[in-house]
Design a protein around this nucleic acid. Structure first.
Lengths: 155, 155
DNA sequence: ACTGAAATCTCGCGATG
DNA sequence: CATCGCGAGATTTCAGT
């Protein structure tokens, strides 16, 4: 399952993260190697799941997603079947971009991306009708200062 | 600046989000069109900034990023130069994956991805030494239930 | 594990209906 | 606006070292 990632692998990952549309030749040049070994390393990391999907970043505003909420959830229920239902609900809903189970006072945090406040309310009503939650706080984003999925890899 | 995005454009974006490594022919087939028009639409959306960078999703765990914090920040300072310094600090630090300015009680939320709790503390100390903040709450993620940058585009 | 090169496929664009 | 086709260049495979 696990793979040894060496310095060259890390350089390749940095380049792929920066721009996955680069050609193998370009990447090879940047990491100081040549095409074939780079290709083999990429293939191995893909197989190992270190490298996942290849996607494009889209401009949320331009596509009409004007509202972004962070939702802090407290629940009194901690039984296995409640949790399973909750997780299923989160995974099914495409407007949930992130969901984390937390340590401490607050149990879950979600990042929810919707077209507008009404769409958020619809999401919220649907969620609380599916699963019981004790307390919900929604934080409305006014400005997306920074947004990157990139990991802070160092050479 | 703004572009009209029609149903075909949206289908193209859905496919690119799903898998950006697909060939033009494949995408064309999936959206019910052919190579050239799809290519022209993609080019236009790229120029308009609707389509941004092309990246790969990496497995944070496999690369040793074991800790993820959501940081809620309250500040008493709301002057322009303080804000400028704060934003600069956030943009410079690669461990800050997301930063949003919020409406209401809490002023900012950050998502910070680091190798371990010690690395978070180093980040925290560096941040508060650069800019004055009134109150900071860190929420530690125990489990990443879901994580996608994908927008919930509908066909 | 790297190199070099061959076979195959895709891109990007122009010509054409 | 869609289809076809082509040449440059990329991807992927495979031998040799």
């Amino acid at each position: 399952m696990s793979v040894r990632i060496d310095a060259t692998d890390r350089k390749i990952l940095i380049e792929l993260q920066r721009d996955a549309s680069q050609s193998l030749d370009e990447i090879a040049r940047q990491v100081g190697s040549s095409k074939t070994p780079v290709w083999n390393r990429i293939r191995k990391m893909r197989e190992a799941g270190v490298i996942g999907r290849q996607t494009v970043e889209l401009d949320a505003q331009a596509l009409g997603f004007e509202a972004c909420f962070f939702v802090l959830i407290r629940t009194s229920e901690h039984e296995a079947d409640w949790q399973a239902a909750f997780l299923r609900a989160l995974k099914e809903r495409p407007e949930v971009q992130e969901a984390h189970r937390l340590a401490g006072d607050i149990d879950y945090i979600l990042k929810v991306r919707v077209k507008n406040a009404r769409a958020y309310d619809a999401f919220y009503q649907a969620l609380i009708s599916e699963v019981r939650v004790y307390n919900v706080t929604a934080l409305l984003s006014m400005e997306e200062i920074k947004s990157t999925g990139a990991l802070p890899l160092e050479a």
